[in-house]
Amino acid sequence: MTSARIVFGLGEHEEAARALLRTEWALADLPSCVNEPRFWTMTCPDFSGLAGLAVVTNGFKGPQAADLPRPYQPVLEYLVVDRQARGKMLGRRFARRVLEEACEGSAAVILEVENRRPDAVRFWTKHLECTMVPDYAQTPGKTIRLSWSPPDR
């Protein structure tokens, strides 16, 4: 099994993170601070560059009291593993770690998966036991919403 170092935060990898995002989504960029993004990076000793990037934002929508902090509803916006690092089970380990850490302080993490990516939906539902959110909670458009909760909840 290939070893990997998974770290919370971008550190010195900001430009590498942008480049990795754009290998999958040409127009993608790192989210602004308005969405309260949280970043995880993955590096491997036998891989030059950034092997993986995950971005979780606060997807809370709704009224909030001005004197209280915004409630936290984690939404996994991006999780990408570099093509050269795929096939080594790194994506599963990376995804599980990100979901577990992102879920702290919340009951579940919402994932938005492109509906043109049945392979991605299969990955999340088969390997990480994500479930489809009910139809009323789906957003019309180009994504399918999934949910992940820790097994003990």
Rank of each mutant, 00 (worst) to 15 (best):
D152M: 03
E77N: 14
F47Y: 12
E14Y: 04
S32C: 09
E12G: 15
A19W: 09
R70M: 08
V56K: 05
S3E: 15
L53E: 05
H127D: 14
K126V: 12
L27Q: 13
I144N: 12
R86G: 03
I110E: 10
I144K: 11
E114V: 10
F94W: 00
T57D: 02
E100N: 09
D67L: 15
L53Y: 08
I110L: 15
W124M: 08
V75H: 13
P118E: 01
N115E: 13
C103W: 00
A66Q: 09
R92S: 10
I6K: 05
V121I: 14
G59W: 05
H127G: 02
D119Y: 03
A66Y: 08
C130W: 06
F123C: 05
E114I: 06
A17C: 11
T41W: 03
I6C: 02
T125K: 11
F94S: 03
T143W: 04
C103P: 06
S32I: 03
E77L: 14
R122S: 12
G11Q: 13
G141R: 07
A95R: 07
T139Q: 12
T23V: 04
W148F: 01
A4P: 05
G11H: 04
G62I: 07
D67T: 13
F94G: 03
A137Y: 09
Q64W: 01
R70E: 14
T41V: 08
S3Q: 14
Q138V: 13
C44N: 04
M89N: 09
H127N: 09
R92D: 02
A107R: 09
V98G: 00
G59C: 08
V56F: 00
E15A: 11
S3I: 11
V34H: 11
A102K: 05
V34Y: 06
D152K: 11
P151V: 09
A95E: 00
G11M: 08
N58Q: 08
P150V: 13
L146A: 03
N35I: 13
W25K: 09
T131R: 14
D135S: 15
S48D: 15
C130D: 05
V7Y: 00
E24M: 13
V113K: 12
F47D: 06
Y78S: 10
G87M: 08
L76G: 02
A120M: 10
F47K: 01
S147W: 00
R70T: 14
A102D: 05
L99F: 04
V81H: 01
L90Y: 06
K61W: 00
F47V: 12
P74Q: 08
V55I: 13
R83K: 10
T43M: 07
V75T: 13
D82C: 08
A65S: 01
T143R: 12
D29Q: 10
L10M: 01
A65T: 12
P134W: 14
E129R: 10
E12K: 15
E24Y: 09
A51W: 05
T41F: 04
E112D: 12
K142T: 05
V34K: 14
V133C: 06
Q84G: 14
D82A: 15
V98P: 01
